[in-house]
Amino acid sequence: MIGQRNLYIIASLAAVGGCAWVLLHLLIPGQMALVPACIFRYVTGYPCPSCGSTHAVLKIFQLNWVGAFYDNPIGFILAATMIMLPLWLLYDLVGRKSTFYTFYASAESFIRRRWVAITLITLVVANWAWNIHKYTA
């Protein structure tokens, strides 16, 4: 289990990095397409399970939810995280609480249960197969 301080540092970096990435796409849309975001796709030529999620997040914020789902359903998880995570971290920071860490610890032990893990792995693999189909079709 990761330490509380390290988790908050990683979560803060992820929140800042994610917002910066989406903002850059909104500010300079044409140029960001030239940046190779996914090493996996750059090396193998095939998309990774989360390829297309940036476009999905952008479409979610433009309220084009069907388009976002077709780009990558993972975008919904990321968009929800992008909104909730900074607020949650601020709440913990201001109130000197550790609610996010407690949630993370309980969520991690829940996900480790066999049936939950199998369900999630199946969903990710199915989404990956769909992603590869979309990119190669």
Binding site: G17, S50, I111
Partner: peptide, 27 residues
């Protein structure tokens, strides 16, 4: 890139985060 290293050592939460963010945009 798919977070397999984090899953293997038992950092499941970070593994998922890495998997869903294209390996933290590769960084």
């Amino acid at each position: 890139h798919l977070g397999i290293d984090r899953f293997m050592i038992g950092d499941t939460g970070l593994g998922i985060a890495k998997l869903l963010t294209c390996g933290g945009l590769g960084i």
